[in-house]
Design a protein around this nucleic acid. Sequence first.
DNA 1: CATAATAGTTTCTTTTAGGTAACTAGTAAC
DNA 2: GTTACTAGTTACCTAAAAGAAACTATTATG
Lengths: 124, 124
Amino acid sequence: MAKIKRDGILREANCTEELLAMRDSLDVLGGKWKLMILRFLTNRTHQIIHFKKMQREIEGISAKMLSKELKDLEVNLLITRVVQDTRPITVAYSVTEYGKSVLPVTETLVQWGLNHREKIIESV
Amino acid sequence: MAKIKRDGILREANCTEELLAMRDSLDVLGGKWKLMILRFLTNRTHQIIHFKKMQREIEGISAKMLSKELKDLEVNLLITRVVQDTRPITVAYSVTEYGKSVLPVTETLVQWGLNHREKIIESV
DNA sequence: CATAATAGTTTCTTTTAGGTAACTAGTAAC
DNA sequence: GTTACTAGTTACCTAAAAGAAACTATTATG
């Protein structure tokens, strides 16, 4: 966590920097699917993951969105795409080392989601 | 981090649960502004924060979006809204204890954003 | 009475996200 | 030749997100 400095102005400047950094993160990782896809691939690091398999297992995603999001993630060096010479052709997706650096983000979101669901249930 | 179990089926079931939890988180915290607003308010916990001040300091947000996002956050018990009897009227926003539970999420996003910017700079 | 401040709301418009369904292309099994 | 599988793409459409600008209401100042 960022240090809380005594000087109010410094603390506020620091906050502005933090918000800019968060904006950068959200530009790359934001939206409905990118973090879901990264989490899925990270959980499957030692398996070969094909397009159709992802589409089946990431609930609700369409071929169009999956294709588009995978391209975005590849451009940002978070995943790799390898065409395999099988019949029929298959394409193996996997998370890169850099992509694994997103794990702390998805982990806090998973934990918060679990906690949130508990909170909702107990408040009924 | 979630335990990696020996049994493939259990691991995959576990992954599905994780994705559902993440979907819950993203439903509440997703979008362009909510995490930014929560981070801002958390960084300002010991100050009184007014609507106009937020609009000035969270770069790029419009009054309409700020108003809408604050309502959503209030409904989800993440922030409080207190009208103050001043002339002209002011409204004080602050993060709730529950809202503070989002801090780990914003913190990982801030850190990832800082790291990502470094990576981009050194790759040029 | 004009100006300015707070805290929004309203209207209008554009942009983006996202969904559905049909379609391509290659190959293999029946 | 028909069906089925992979891995997408394309076209069409709707809904949601988002932005800009004008506007409301209240009160104080000059």
